[in-house]
Nucleic acid binder design. Sequence first.
DNA 1: GTCGTTGCAAAGCCTTTGCAGGGAA
DNA 2: TTCCCTGCAAAGGCTTTGCAACGAC
Lengths: 126, 126
Amino acid sequence: MRRNTAQRMAIEKVFNQHERPLGVDEVLSYGRHLVDSLNQATVYRNLKILVDEGLLKRISHPSLGTLYERTGKAHHHLFHCRECNRVFELSGCALKEDGAAPGGFVLEGHEVFLFGVCPSCGGMPR
Amino acid sequence: MRRNTAQRMAIEKVFNQHERPLGVDEVLSYGRHLVDSLNQATVYRNLKILVDEGLLKRISHPSLGTLYERTGKAHHHLFHCRECNRVFELSGCALKEDGAAPGGFVLEGHEVFLFGVCPSCGGMPR
DNA sequence: GTCGTTGCAAAGCCTTTGCAGGGAA
DNA sequence: TTCCCTGCAAAGGCTTTGCAACGAC
C-alpha cells in the first residue's frame, strides 16, 4: 500500500509549485526546502513511482537531459531558449497529425522540442 | 591537422552503410567489422569530432538514448516502433511552422519524435 | 621527426540497488 | 506490529580523460 510520507508529499508539492519541467537536481534542491533530510535516492525512487502512477511524465531533452513534468495538462510542446536556457511550455499542438506518418505507420504519440529565443531574451534571429 | 586514420574512416563508413540513426554500441560493433582493434573511446572521440565538424548530428531519443545520424539529409522526423524498437526516418516535416510558437518567440529549430507501430509490425492500434 | 590518434585503464557523471533502521497505518 | 519507505553507501551504465605507444604526413 502506498504511504504518504513527508518526502513523497514534498516531491509532489515541488511539482505543484513549479509549473515548468524540472530536472532531478531541481526536484532535490526544491524538495530540501520542504524536507531537509531529503535524499537523492529517495527522489529517484519517487520520481519513478510517480511516473508509473501516471502523475508525472519523463522527458528526455536533447540538451538538458532528463526532465519531469506533471501530466494532466493540455497537450503542449516544450520550447528551449538558447539564451537563458529556460524551458517553456507552449500550449497547443503544432503537429499536422495528417501526413505526419506515411501509410502503414500507426501513429500513437509524438514528442516535439522547439528551439530558439524567448521573448524576454530579445528574440533577434541568429 | 585532421588525420585520416583507419579508425576514423571506418566510423564514417559505418554511417554510409547504414542509413538509420545508430547508437554508440552499434557504431562500435559495425566498425569492428572494418577495423577489429577499434576501441570504444576512439568511437566516442570521433563521434564528438564528427558532430563538431557537422558531419553527424547527435540525437537524444526519449527511450533509446543517444543516437547519431548523418547530416545533410532532407529534413525528416524519426519514428520509433514500439514493437520492433527500430527507428525509421520519415521524410518531410509535419510541423506547422506557423503557429508553432506564440508571438515573441523566435523559432530556430525543432526536433520531433513519433511513436507507434511500423507497417511490418502490423500496425494494429493499441 | 612531429604531433594528432589510438588503446587501455581509470575516473566521472547520472542513476539504481542492497541493507538496516525508521515511521505510516 | 507490519512492512513500506528512507538515508547512506556501494555498485552499475554510459561517457570522458590521462597516459604512453603508435602512425599519418
